[in-house]
Deep mutational scan, measured.
Amino acid sequence: MSIQHFRVALIPFFAAFCLPVFAHPETLVKVKDAEDQLGARVGYIELDLNSGKILESFRPEERFPMMSTFKVLLCGAVLSRVDAGQEQLGRRIHYSQNDLVEYSPVTEKHLTDGMTVRELCSAAITMSDNTAANLLLTTIGGPKELTAFLHNMGDHVTRLDRWEPELNEAIPNDERDTTMPAAMATTLRKLLTGELLTLASRQQLIDWMEADKVAGPLLRSALPAGWFIADKSGAGERGSRGIIAALGPDGKPSRIVVIYTTGSQATMDERNRQIAEIGASLIKHW
């Protein structure tokens, strides 16, 4: 067993022997301040990774656009098919120029040779490549099948209805392509620590998230040296922004954090800054 596999296998073990965790309302004060600064709703939840206990939450059962955070769930569904012998990570998928959609920095470079399922998941999570996500959605049967996968996990809230990039439209009061912070946090925890996926697939999923290259201005910008984070960000229309993450000190994750916002007129930089400040408060009061 590799060191990384050992780390993920012992996530519940280490967490069980940690000192009790206590909620700190100071972080919620910052979440509410972010709402004021952005002029928009902000949803927040913080779960203990081992027990699933909610440590703090704000608007945990209000719907927010998922945006690209759905790509972690998508690759979880792909990995479940791999575990069941219905898919192979090494299978190569070929596609054409007509398949390319807006923001496809990886797939646009491989029109000639195609990409493997493993490479597509890596591109979808680490670079948020939209064509990679659409190609992977095709392998599982489309958005409705991802929703069905989530329902089978016990998540009857999260739903995907459309493809990239239309799913980022974020129309107010439109339930399409949305989740709730509580539902997303619980589902992410199941994917990373539950028995739904094999140990190898859980490790692969967290490795992809740990290698995320496009979430630097968010929670990662607030992390002290030595902290662990595996995350996936999302951005959408109407001032929408979000991030889902597993993080913790001492090089291992111990909490799940989900943050979503929508309806702001603020710039992307300002949305990023507010999420980073929430992260800084979380870490300060850990």
Rank of each mutant, 00 (worst) to 15 (best):
I283S: 07
D207L: 13
E35I: 00
G216I: 07
C75N: 00
K252D: 15
D161A: 06
N168M: 00
L146C: 05
N130T: 01
D250F: 13
P165F: 04
N272M: 04
D99I: 08
I229T: 02
L146A: 06
D129E: 04
R91Q: 07
D250G: 13
S254C: 13
A123K: 04
T267N: 14
L197S: 06
S264H: 05
N272L: 03
I283M: 10
L219T: 03
S96G: 14
M184Q: 03
L135K: 06
L111M: 12
I275Q: 04
A222H: 10
G39I: 08
D177G: 00
L150C: 09
G154W: 04
A182K: 15
I140F: 10
E108D: 13
G43Y: 00
A211C: 14
D36M: 15
K284I: 09
I93F: 07
Y44M: 09
G216T: 08
T69C: 06
K32V: 12
I206Y: 11
E210K: 10
L73S: 08
I243C: 08
A185V: 07
E270G: 09
A235S: 09
V29P: 03
H151M: 14
A124P: 03
A276Q: 11
E169Y: 09
K213T: 09
P25N: 14
G239Y: 02
E210F: 11
C121Y: 00
V117K: 01
S68R: 01
H24C: 09
A77V: 12
T158Q: 02
T178I: 05
Q265I: 14
L146I: 11
T27F: 03
L100D: 02
Y95W: 14
P25W: 12
T147I: 07
P249N: 09
A215V: 05
I244S: 04
S104E: 02
A34I: 09
H156C: 11
K232A: 02
F64N: 00
D231K: 05
E270F: 09
S57A: 12
M180T: 15
T138Q: 14
G234A: 09
E56M: 07
D212V: 05
L218H: 03
K53G: 13
R162F: 03
E169G: 11
M127T: 14
N152W: 12
A40G: 15
T187S: 13
A124E: 03
L282P: 03
N152Q: 13
A182T: 13
L73A: 13
R220A: 04
A225S: 13
L196C: 15
Q274I: 12
G279V: 05
A185D: 02
R41Q: 09
T138P: 07
M209K: 00
E277P: 03
E164T: 01
L192P: 00
T186G: 15
I259F: 08
I244W: 00
W227V: 00
F58K: 06
R241F: 01
G141R: 06
H156I: 10
G76D: 02
K71T: 02
K144M: 11
Q203N: 10
I93L: 13
R159D: 02
L55Q: 08
K109F: 10
G114I: 02
G248M: 02
L74Q: 00
V117E: 04
I140P: 01
K144G: 12
S57E: 12
Q88L: 14
S122Q: 14
T147L: 06
A34H: 04
E169L: 11
S104A: 09
L55W: 07
A230D: 00
D212L: 02
A182C: 13
G76Y: 05
G194P: 10
V117I: 15
Y95I: 10
A132S: 08
T116R: 05
L188M: 14
V117N: 04
D269G: 12
A235W: 03
E119R: 05
P165W: 03
V82K: 06
T179P: 01
W208S: 03
K232D: 01
D99A: 10
I256Q: 00
E35L: 02
E46M: 13
R41W: 04
W208T: 02
T131L: 07
D177I: 01
T69K: 01
F58Y: 11
D212W: 03
A246I: 14
D129G: 02
L100Y: 06
P249K: 15
W227F: 08
I278M: 09
M184Y: 09
P65M: 04
V257T: 07
A148H: 12
T198P: 06
T198H: 11
